[in-house]
C-alpha cells in the first residue's frame, strides 16, 4: 500500500501558479476556485484521495507555500523526517 500523505498550503504565499498541479505524480492537486487568498489568487488544494506525501509539490513550489506530511508506516519508519 502506498504511503499516505497530505499537504498544508499557506494562503499568504500561494500564488496559484499551478506548477505543483502539473508536477504532482498522483495528480491529486487543483486550484480551489471557491476561494481567494488575501493576494487575490485561487490557492491550490487536494481534490481527491491518493496523496503519498512525496513532497514533489513542495520541491517545485517557487513560494515555499507547501508543508508536506507523510504517515510513518512500518516500511517507511527508518527514513528520517526532512529527507
Amino acid at each position: 500500500m502506498p504511503a499516505k500523505g497530505t499537504i498544508e498550503v499557506n494562503d499568504l504565499y500561494c500564488k496559484g501558479c499551478e506548477l505543483c498541479v502539473a508536477a504532482c505524480p498522483p495528480q491529486v492537486l487543483a486550484l480551489d476556485m471557491e476561494r481567494l487568498t488575501p493576494k487575490g489568487y485561487h490557492p491550490v488544494h487536494i481534490v481527491k484521495e491518493g496523496c503519498t506525501g512525496c513532497a514533489i509539490c513542495a520541491l517545485v513550489c517557487p513560494d515555499a507555500a507547501i508543508t508536506v506530511y507523510r504517515e510513518v508506516t512500518k516500511a517507511a519508519a527508518p527514513v528520517a523526517a526532512g529527507g
Binding site: K4, G5, T6, E8, N10, L12, Y13, K15, G16, C17, E18, L19, K39, Y41, G53, A55, A58, L59, P62, D63, A64, A65, I66, T67, V68, Y69, R70, E71, V72, A81, G82, G83
Partner: peptide, 28 residues
C-alpha cells in the same frame, strides 16, 4: 496526519515571513 512526527517538508527557517514579489510561477 498533520503532526510534527509526520513532517516531510516545511518552509525553510532561513526565510523571513515575507511573501515574495515575484510573478506567479517564476523560478526565481
Amino acid at each position: 496526519l498533520m503532526v510534527p512526527e509526520n513532517l516531510v517538508y516545511e518552509r525553510p527557517h532561513s526565510f523571513t515571513d515575507a511573501p515574495t514579489h515575484y510573478c506567479p510561477g517564476c523560478t526565481h
